[in-house]
Design a protein around this nucleic acid. Structure first.
Lengths: 203, 203, 203, 203
DNA sequence: CAATAACCGAGACGGTACGTCGCGTCTTGAA
DNA sequence: TTCAAGACGCGACGTACCGTCTCGGTTATTG
């Protein structure tokens, strides 16, 4: 999914490919990203180191691939007609995922590594993050058409208003990431986006 | 400044101490945090490796110290009476700092490293981040007393509502961090925090 | 020429065979035997590695084949009737060959490799060395019949007496290998082999 | 004894130094020079690889050092007054040593490696070979003064006449290296060197 | 006013992992 | 079947740094 060059993908050993991704997931869970080693991955996967270096340029993109394989494709959001309720659902789900043991370690690792490697950052955002933000944005667009979100609002900003606070708290660990917090953020953010009350209209 | 134990501060060579912090700042700028090496720091500072290991437990805390020395103490915020204007100032300043070449590399490095090292994370947040958020919170408290912010608002959440979106955009590089964006975020966030209009009262 | 087994000589690509031997000669000259690589040979010859492994069991025997192809078949020695003069010719020719750039590198390589690989040693001696020593021995046999060499002399020892000193000096580089040295050795060696003077006889 | 550069010999760990030489001797015996590995040496010696690379530039010189440590200093030859008898002793001893299991493997290895590495060759000859040849040459000089060797003889050539045949047979394995062969070579070589019979003198 | 104990620079040490090279085997598709 | 091409598992290379450990050589009190 994310290997930069594909010398001859037809010849690639699918068995090795899968074994490597599996080993990465296992090892990142066992020892964390910092202690993760190409040699250990190769050993666990029963693969030569060169086979890893042949297909991935660095540890970051390898972990990204392994992590991407873990996540299913982004599902579209439910639309109950109530944006606030729907956004609460989204943020609660996001918070839960960020704290789930399976996702937390690689998410933090990829976020961290992205700070040191802009190429990885781009790949990470494009592959994993943007699609997920996009479905939220889509839901907001519907809300905007329905008049629940003010017409002039830049929806990218709107999404950041919803997700940014959660992300800030998660990443900097300033406080626990509870479902209640998710609800609060959703309420505040959507309050900010609500169109101004006009006399004679109903929200 | 942040070393946990001070075996015998009287004997500590201030010359070496400063040379190390200076070397760290220089080298982190030249080669980035990832390629930063204790050996290189020692060589640049003209110092034995042991002198570094004696006073700092790891690279992260060393960089934190060096970075903290770069930043002056947190100054209190101006209070013009207009929260929105004041917050725009704060966010614009924050955005500018995050993008300034002097601060960007170590900020990203510390944020990244904090993901892999909770001890560093705590130190980072307590030393550098919290004080900065605290002054913002203080200004909001004043606004709350003045009735510009709703009475029931949790000010920690309020601060995150303001800072989170900026931080999200900076860290994930989803879009450029402009002063206009800072203004927009400030407007939206404070709109969300404004007390509900009561008949017969003025905002 | 010297491959042990010939799985199916009929199918063997003569074009590839020659390209490989040519590549070996070139590369051994360019980078020496130690840095010679099967992969480099294959690349230079425009040949798959397997084609080399199919026909030669190891690098040593491959170089031996390539070197043997370089040397013509051993020519019989001239017989002027004067053993000493003839042997001087032989030793001067030997010395010249050992020092010629074309032969020196592979000769040293094969001698060296033979120390670590007895199978190669045998092949090397039988294919290249023994025939060359044999013609010298033959010339000495003639001299022995003519009474110029004592009757009881073991001709194998005689040959070693002639060739050994040259070889020793060449291999260990204790001193330069000049034609004069060849002459001196020939004189001494044949002096040792001369039959004892009997009263009333002439040498 | 043969390390090229001595960064700071005072700080060198003698324990490690000795352990390395010991490991080399053991391993060269167990697996031969060709299969000898720096990693294996380091492991066996309980030493980091860098400690080997720090003090020796390559495998050849390391083995040379280890081998030199094995051999005592060259003892002077006995002088019984009978050159032939003395030389027989020398050659028999040389033959025995070349075939002794302890010396054969490293001797062949160093001879072989010297073919590919002139620097090693020089060191090898100067350190181990030349001193040994020199004592023989010295004994011959005495014989020359005593009139047992012709006055005009170049003693370097004389030594090669004695040692060359043995060396040739040993290195190329053309025939077994027996004590009898050593005797024969000594007899022939000294016959060649004997001064011409002058009337009225006795040999 | 020595002495004595810390800290200092330097850098060797036992290790771990790196990213590369080349081995000899195996697989694929064309001739 | 052989061949060119080249991926594969593997093992070793030589290097970079890690964090620890001596070394002497300053300091800087303190008995």
């Amino acid at each position: 999914m994310s290997e930069g060059k594909t010398p001859d993908a037809g010849r690639r050993s699918e068995r090795s490919h899968q074994a490597i991704l599996k080993a990465v997931v296992e090892l990142v869970g066992e020892m964390g990203y910092g202690r993760l080693t190409i040699e250990a991955i190769a050993a666990r996967a029963g693969v030569g180191k060169q086979t890893i270096y042949r297909w991935w340029p660095n540890k970051g993109l390898l972990v990204l691939d392994a992590f991407a394989a873990l996540m299913g494709d982004t599902a579209p959001l439910p639309d109950t007609g109530d944006v606030v309720a729907d956004m609460k659902l989204v943020l609660r789900a996001t918070a839960a995922e960020l704290c789930s043991p399976r996702f937390e370690v690689p998410s933090r690792a990829l976020t961290a590594e992205s700070q040191l490697d802009p190429a990885l950052a781009k790949q990470f955002v494009d592959t994993l993050l943007r699609p997920s933000l996009e479905v939220t944005k889509e839901r907001l667009r519907v809300a905007q058409r329905a008049g629940q979100v003010a017409a002039g609002v830049d929806l990218d900003v709107a999404v950041e208003l919803l997700v940014g606070p959660l992300f800030h708290r998660w990443l900097l660990r300033t406080a626990p990431l509870t479902p209640e917090y998710a609800d609060t953020v959703a309420e505040y953010a959507l309050a900010a986006l609500r169109p101004p009350r006009t006399s004679g209209s109903a929200g």
